[in-house]
Design a protein around this nucleic acid. Structure first.
Lengths: 340, 340
DNA sequence: AACTTCTGCTAAATCCATTTAGCATATTTC
DNA sequence: GAAATATGCTAAATGGATTTAGCAGAAGTT
């Protein structure tokens, strides 16, 4: 075979076959017929390539063709079902198109977002998806300058095409179910996320719409945007208790990470939560096993990634346009009789 | 700036500065001092590079230097805390070394494993970590041939250095706690994983060792290796019930995915599980909130990735050697009084 | 004035695969 | 038998950055 640790080049392959590198290249890339290479020669080269374990140097190839064969996805982190699901589908769709996926996480820190974005662009990814980036304009602009096709996912931006979950519709549906049959004067709360952030604002809007529908005043509900950190959500609830107040009768939690804070507090002090109804704008298999009736919303991860690649495949610009993907309500741990 | 969608090359940068490409390259790579480039010239080039937004073409650079600046991690999937944690730490450590991490998942399908491995090697990653690959020998061999440094994580192999959790010690500790105070004749069970697979076998060994310690016969416990699929684990338990038998009094679940099957069955039929004690060789924040006393084991994700990079940094071969990383017992949802 | 030494820079080769234009033979046509 | 056509292949340019060997000219030395 080849020398230890050294990859064989097309020139060596050609030499072994007694041809020129050009011939070998034409054969390896399947365009030998148009170039009238003798079928026997082609076969000989193909067999030899197999035997010698010839693998074209991807970097030389990419340089020549100006195609990196890379695709990039940026997510806040891996440690939640939503982003992990995005990662898996992104991988799958990338492979289907012969692209090698690079996934980078940023912990939602803007500086890291920019750095990871820049590094993906420096790698000349052919397609870049920005998921959950609060302010994607900067990376959108860098992409445009570098000629990298870039789409925003989950949180949109005006500088390129965006794909997002139907946040308002989802929150409306979720809140409707949460309020069904609840006394009009029962205290209701929205917990987690960040004010003035696209997704959170729309979810609050859906939440308020459901309140109005049922004859409740917007002001009758508490909205507590404490970010996405589990501990922050827990602390927010704890402070209510410490202040001597009761927890709400119905609670809409804005993300699975905030829900984690809720869950650990519930675990440690279940007595505080008796009779509470909960809904969560996200889904997790274990969360759906907790013995708290929780209405969960499963975002359509496959659909979201699918729309991104549709845009990529179509090759249209559509800057500023938005595609909404509806989420699905999940009632895993609802008692069957209320599972209409 | 540069023309739309076209990146500026070092030759254009050099032209703008009125120098040769060689000079520009020397300046951009910091080796200009050794080459007696005039500090003024160097400064001029640096300023211009900034203004024009010059970014060296990574592919040309990689081709010339035979360094891809890529690192690769292969995992079964993203959708669980253990592998997601590995991914995040791998990313972090890669960035610290100026490497761009590529993460690929394989759904534990051998054909996909080989394909993803081959594609990483074709990309000439400088460092490759194979996590949770049952039979890494093939990819180990491919790596060696291509001169790619490769380490096995979680499941070891004899062909290169391996880093694994202390499965036996962990299972021993976990089982000890599971059995503490349990009547000698209470039925005990081990659920999930795959027979003859390194990790599972060692965990069973630890499980048996704890049985012996407490005066129980190996044969007194049931070992049910039904793989890693949640549904398979659930079905395995369901079959016991369908056969008219009781579930065990103490259950050691071999992975978080199998635990998911256990959890959904428990959710749907809690009455079947009264008084059961459970331990799980893995951890998940929501799982640790279930109102079932569960002894969980949190693998040291950071330590595992850390040992991999230590090996990479040291540059030694150590083929076949094994490093054990101890896991940590977590008792999140244990009542405080038993939380010694 | 003839020499060495130093300064500041560059030409050219290199990494490897791809692709176009075109060169020899061989074969066919009238 | 000369011209036209077909066959099978290759030389050379290309992509962009890196690096070595070495060229001019200035400055210093005796």
């Amino acid at each position: 075979m080849n020398r230890q640790g050294k990859k064989i080049t097309i020139r060596e392959l050609a030499e072994a076959a007694g041809t020129s590198a050009a011939t070998a290249s034409l054969v390896m890339n399947g365009s030998w017929k148009q170039h009238r290479i003798n079928p026997d020669t082609a076969e000989r080269i193909r067999v030899l390539a197999q035997q010698l374990g010839y693998q074209p140097n991807q970097r030389a190839r990419a340089l020549r063709l100006s195609r990196s064969s890379l695709s990039g996805l940026i997510i806040p982190h891996h440690r939640n079902r939503f982003f992990a699901g995005l990662a898996e589908h992104f991988e799958h769709e990338s492979h289907r198109r012969g692209l090698i996926p690079i996934i980078g996480s940023t912990q939602r820190v803007p500086e890291i977002e920019d750095k990871v974005g820049a590094s993906m662009i420096a790698q000349e990814v052919e397609f870049l998806v920005l998921a959950g980036i609060r302010n994607p304009s900067k990376i959108n602009a860098m992409s445009r300058r570098a000629g990298v096709r870039c789409v925003n996912l989950d949180l949109p931006g005006k500088d390129t095409f965006s794909v997002v979950t139907d946040n308002m519709g989802g929150a409306l549906e979720l809140t409707r179910r949460l309020l069904a049959g609840l006394p009009l004067n029962a205290p209701v709360m929205f917990l987690g996320g960040r004010m003035r952030e696209y997704a959170t604002d729309l979810r609050i809007e859906g939440f308020h719409a459901a309140l109005s529908e049922t004859g409740r005043a917007k002001t009758s509900a508490t909205v507590l945007c404490c970010g996405y950190d589990p501990q922050a959500a827990r602390d927010a609830l704890q402070r209510i208790i410490d202040a001597g107040n009761d927890l709400p009768a119905a609670l809409l939690v804005n993300s699975i990470t905030a829900f984690e804070g809720f869950a650990t507090l519930w675990r440690d002090h279940p007595e505080l939560f008796s009779g509470i109804r909960v809904a969560c704008f996200d889904w997790d298999p274990f969360a759906s096993c907790l013995p708290i009736e929780t209405i969960m919303l499963r975002q359509d991860v496959e659909g979201l990634i699918g729309r991104c690649f549709d845009w990529f495949d179509a090759g249209q610009e559509r800057a500023g346009e938005l595609v909404l993907v509806p989420p699905r309500v999940v009632l895993d741990n609802y008692p069957p009789d209320r599972n209409k």
